[in-house]
Design a protein around this nucleic acid. Structure first.
Lengths: 207, 207
DNA sequence: CGATAATTTGATCAATATCAAATATCGTGG
DNA sequence: CCACGATATTTGATATTGATCAAATTATCG
C-alpha cells in the first residue's frame, strides 16, 4: 500500500525530516499545547484522545504505520487532543509553521496538499459507505468491487485478510467465511500466487 | 449543522455560483467524461457510482443536502464515476479549471481548501472509528462523548435521532433503545427544550 | 385539522461476534 | 537449510445482539 505518509512528505522537497522515537506510553503532544508540527507514523501506533471534564477520555483516532495524522493541526493554534504511543513507535515530524510558510510562497505545495487530502476524503467516504452494508458477504464483495480493475475485474492483494477484516469492520472469521461462500457460489475466484505468496481475486457474476 | 458546502463555496468570493436542477434519475456527469466542475448539494440526493466490466455497478458515495462532493475531481482529468440524482435535486457547480486557476494565483485559497479538507478528514476519521465499536450503547455513548462540550459535558442537538442513527450505522430502534438504557442507568440526561423543540444531553458517570 | 414524520416499546429471528482448535505459512536465527 | 515460534488461515459450535416487522403515541408543518 502506498502510504499517504510518503505523499505528504513529498510535499516538502529539500531538508530531511526529523524523526522522533517514542516509547510505549510516551506522549507525542498534549491537548491545549501550542501546535508545533504535523506527523506521520514510520512504525508503531499512536492514539489520539481527548480529555473530558469528568476525568474520562475519548479516543478520536488510532494512527498506524504509514499514515499521516493531525493534518488539521496545520491550521490550528493548539492541539485539540493528546497523542500517545501505544507501542514503541517512530514518527516523522513536519514543522507546521514551516509547511504553512512554504505553501504561502508556493501555491503548488498547497494545491498538492489539497490533492492528497481530497483523495483521502474520497477513500474514507468509500470506506464509510461500506460500513453501511450490514451483510458480511455483501460488504466484502463491495470492497472487492471497489478495488477491482474495472476491465479485468481482478484485485491483487498485498495485504493479509486479517488486516482487511479490520478495515471492513468485520471479525476475521466472518471474512474467511464470506470468502469461502463467495468462492463456493462461484462469485469470486481466489488464486494464490506461489511466486510471491500474494493472492489474486477475480470477480465473476454480477450479484 | 454548518455544511462543508458553505465553507467550500466560501473559497471563491466574487461571482455567483451556477445552480443546476436535476430530475430524479437524471445524471449530473458520467464516468470517463472530462472533468468540468466540483459540486455541492443544495437539496436532494446524488449518488456516485462506478461501472464494472460485467455490466454491474458499485456505489461509491451518496451525497446529501449540504455536502460537497467530487472534490477529488478538482485534480482529475476525467470523472472516475457517474453521478445521478436519486430524487429531484439542486446542485451548485464550481468550475474546476476556474478554482484551480484561482488557487494558483492565490495560495490562500489553496490553503483554505486544504484546511476544509483536513477538517473533513478529521471528522470522517472520528466517524469511522465509531463504526469499530460493536455495541450500540457504547457506540452511541462514544458519539455523544466526541461531541460533548468538554467542560459542561453537554451536547446540544439540532438534528433528529433518526438522522443520527444513520450516521451511527445503527437502526433508529437500536438508538432509541440505547438512549433509554443510558438514561435509565443515569449515564445521560435528556432534556427537551420546550422553546425550540430541540434537545440537550448531559453526560454523567464515566464508563 | 389532517397528513406526514419522529419517537417509543414489544416480539422475533437471523447474522455475526466470540470462543475453540487445527492446519498452514512466514520469518528468523542457528 | 532446518527448526521453531509467531502469525495467518480455516472451520465448527454457541450465544448475543441488533435488524426487522409491528404498532401505538406524539410532534411537526402547512
Amino acid at each position: 500500500m502506498t502510504s499517504d505518509l510518503d505523499k505528504l512528505l513529498g510535499l516538502l522537497s529539500a531538508n530531511q525530516y526529523p524523526q522522533k522515537t517514542l516509547q510505549a506510553g510516551e506522549h507525542l503532544f498534549r491537548q491545549h499545547q501550542p501546535v508545533h508540527a504535523i506527523f506521520g507514523v514510520k512504525s508503531g501506533r499512536v492514539r489520539l484522545y481527548r480529555d473530558l471534564a469528568d476525568g474520562s477520555s475519548v479516543t478520536l483516532h488510532v494512527a498506524r504505520t504509514g499514515t499521516a495524522f493531525a493534518e488539521a493541526t496545520l491550521f490550528a493554534e493548539r492541539y485539540h487532543c493528546h497523542a500517545i504511543a501505544e507501542i514503541n513507535s517512530i514518527v516523522v515530524t513536519l514543522d507546521s509553521a514551516e509547511v504553512l510558510r512554504a505553501m504561502s510562497l508556493n501555491p503548488d505545495l498547497a494545491i498538492n496538499l489539497s490533492r492528497q487530502l481530497a483523495a483521502q476524503v474520497r477513500d474514507m467516504r468509500a470506506l464509510l459507505s461500506l460500513r453501511d452494508i450490514r451483510s458480511a458477504d455483501e460488504r466484502l464483495l463491495a470492497w472487492l468491487r471497489q478495488r477491482a480493475n474495472s476491465q479485468t475485474l481482478t484485485i491483487y492483494l498485498d495485504r493479509t485478510w486479517t488486516g482487511i477484516s479490520e478495515e471492513l469492520g468485520l471479525s476475521k472469521e466472518a471474512v474467511y467465511r464470506s470468502l469461502a461462500k463467495l468462492q463456493q457460489q462461484n462469485i469470486i475466484l481466489r488464486q494464490r500466487d506461489k511466486m510471491n505468496n500474494h493472492e489474486t481475486i477475480t470477480l465473476h457474476h454480477p450479484p
